[in-house]
């Protein structure tokens, strides 16, 4: 990887970092996810400045060339991240269902109370 490519990737990653901090600042991203993605940016930077690490991964995994090793690590990470996102979505869906059920029960009990009051006033 030449110096120019390293600089371009680093600038792009710094911009992503600034964007992440802005999201945290305005409470649009939770701290736990921000730490996760900032950690990812640092790891990507390590791969950008030490391409030998990619070669080592390729050697260990039986692939050829640093790019293949890098992509291998990246794909593995992407798969894990997607599984995590799917898990979070499932959890949120479950919580949404619980809230919807509670809301419906609350409305039902309020309607019943209103009917009872109407009956009393009648």
């Amino acid at each position: 990887m030449d110096t120019r490519t390293q600089i371009v990737i680093t600038v792009a990653l710094v911009l992503v970092l600034v964007w992440l901090l802005r999201l945290v600042r305005f409470r649009q991203l939770r701290g736990k996810y921000a730490v996760y993605w900032i950690g990812t940016i640092f790891i990507l930077e390590i791969f950008v400045f030490w391409p030998e690490l990619g070669q080592w991964v390729s050697g260990e995994s039986g692939s050829v060339g640093s790019l293949i090793g890098f992509l291998l690590v990246l794909s593995g990470f992407a798969v894990l991240s997607l599984i995590h996102v799917a898990w979070e979505l499932s959890r949120l869906e479950e919580r949404g269902r619980i809230l919807a059920e509670m809301n419906a029960q609350d409305k039902d009990s309020r309607s019943l109370r209103e009917i009872e009051l109407d009956d009393k006033n009648y």
Binding site: L21, R22, V24, R25, F26, R30, G31, K32, A34, V35, I38
Partner: peptide, 17 residues
Amino acid sequence: VYRYLCAVLVIFASVGR
């Protein structure tokens, strides 16, 4: 430790909001 780091990041990012 992990949650402490998250908190410090959030506090740092929120300064001046």
